[in-house]
């Protein structure tokens, strides 16, 4: 399962890197960068699309289609978009593993602070959409602060002098605090949250086979207390399946698809 996910992650991260390389080499049109495939662009395009019947900035039908696909995927398989597709999520995942190897442990934010900090992504979402639709006049001003855009366009059009420092900071913090950007600041994660709660493909704990060893809790990069629930409904579950891989009891953790 781990190999399968890594292969899928490598395909999407490889695609983003290939687009970056092509862009730097000048072999693709200037608007054909990672932004063209970002489903969050579909969210940013919604208001101008309804009001002016036109897209904003560089956003196109592809952003809309991929946004709809990402929402359907989340309804079906929780936040697997974050855990399997998103190149920035993959980068965070690999930096988390690298950080654990270097420091021997992950530096998680204390639970009480974490509970408040997770709400920051909703603030970011409101700010990004509000500013895009008002102050920035439809321009995608978030580019200058968006590590996904900054990293995978290597400081492309719309980024500012300090943008690269934001990307460096996000990468550096991700080595210490697992999924710092994804958990606390990512506006796409905030959009997916309500759909993830309804996600049909969930991890279910078989209480008869489970020995309550707690290995699943320690394996979960999002610190979901799996050993304390019968079914993982947490919005942050990306179905990375790390808990199932680490579980020593066969059949104690299983994937259930709409209860089956």
């Amino acid at each position: 399962m781990r190999i399968l996910r890594t292969v899928v992650q490598m395909i999407f991260l490889g695609g983003a890197v290939a687009l970056l390389a092509k862009g730097l080499a000048g072999v693709v049109p200037a608007n054909h960068n990672c932004e063209a495939y970002c489903p969050f662009g579909g969210i940013a395009a919604l208001f101008p699309l309804v009001k002016y019947k036109a897209y904003t900035c560089r956003l196109t039908e592809l952003n809309m289609s991929l946004m709809i696909s990402a929402l359907i995927l989340t309804i079906a398989t929780k936040k697997s978009f974050c855990g399997w597709i998103c190149p920035l999520g993959t980068l965070h995942d690999w930096l988390r593993k690298l950080g654990s190897r270097i420091f021997g442990r992950a530096f998680y934010v204390p639970r009480e602070a974490d509970r408040w900090l997770v709400s920051l992504r909703y603030v970011v979402l409101v700010l990004v959409l509000g500013l895009t639709w008002t102050v920035w006049g439809g321009d995608l001003g978030f580019r200058a602060y968006d590590p996904f855009y900054i990293i995978f366009t290597w400081g492309g059009h719309g980024t500012l002098a300090f943008s690269v420092y934001i990307a460096i900071a996000v990468v550096a913090v991700a080595l210490f605090v697992p999924f710092f950007w994804c958990r606390y600041l990512c506006p796409m994660g905030a959009v997916l949250d309500p759909f993830s709660r309804a996600g049909g493909l969930r991890i279910r704990r078989n209480t008869d086979s489970c020995t309550d060893c707690g290995k699943c809790d320690r394996a979960c990069p999002h610190r979901i207390p799996i050993s304390q629930v019968d079914e993982v409904t947490a919005r942050d579950c990306t179905n990375c399946l790390e808990c199932m891989v680490e579980c020593p009891e066969k059949g104690a953790l299983e994937l259930s698809c709409y209860g089956k």
Binding site: M1, A54, Y55, S65, I68, S69, N239
Partner: peptide, 29 residues
């Protein structure tokens, strides 16, 4: 059941790319 995830990803991305030509909204009119 874990295969449902990559299968769903493949199908939904394929659908996104196929349907993208079904509707055309201008960047500027």
């Amino acid at each position: 059941k874990a295969l449902i995830i990559p299968a769903a990803i493949a199908v939904l991305i394929l659908v996104a790319f196929v349907t993208v030509n079904a509707y055309r909204v201008p960047t500027l009119h």
